[in-house]
Design a protein around this nucleic acid. Structure first.
Length: 138
DNA sequence: TAGGCCATCTGGTCCT
DNA sequence: AGGACCAGATGGCCTA
């Protein structure tokens, strides 16, 4: 919702529309386009909702700023890999940092959310949890 | 002010 | 035919 919310160019037919020779066709095509735009908006909103839910379960390590979508995906990937390492080799990865095993499973009404007690300290973050703070993207 | 991030529109493609 | 998904284009907002 930035420049032209749903109004100024929502139909997208200010200029010539090849398949709308008659006013009736023009109207049909315009209506279809507007419906498609609305569907697309809704679809993207669903996608953003999913990103928000993902942000909530992914560590942010005290970042005051919201993770971008790209960062959220990268963090989720690292998080999954880290948890996987813990599960597959708990002695090696979890022994020095028992906090990692203090994972709490917080079952929400509509979903199963994994919350955790974030182990503090950047050195731990670096060792157990290698989120690449982002050589490629930025 | 430039660059990053984002929302929205749009046309194309694929699927039902 | 119509809906879902996708990627490119565009323009606004925010921050360093």
């Amino acid at each position: 919702m930035k420049s032209c919310p749903n109004s100024c160019s929502d139909s997208g037919f200010e200029s010539s529309e090849p398949d709308s020779k008659t006013p009736e066709k023009y109207e049909v095509v315009t209506k279809r386009r507007m419906a498609a735009n609305a569907r697309e908006r809704k679809r993207m909103q669903g996608l953003n909702t999913a990103f928000d839910r993902l942000r909530k379960v992914v560590p942010q390590w005290g970042r005051d700023k919201k993770l971008s979508k790209y960062e959220t995906l990268q963090m989720a990937l690292s998080y999954i890999l880290a948890l996987n390492r813990i599960l597959t080799d708990p002695r090696r990865h979890a022994a020095p940092h028992r906090q990692w095993l203090d994972l709490q499973f917080d079952v929400q009404p509509d979903s199963c959310l994994l919350t955790y007690d974030p182990p503090t300290g950047p050195e731990f973050v670096q060792s157990a949890f290698s989120y690449p703070l982002d050589p490629v993207h930025s």
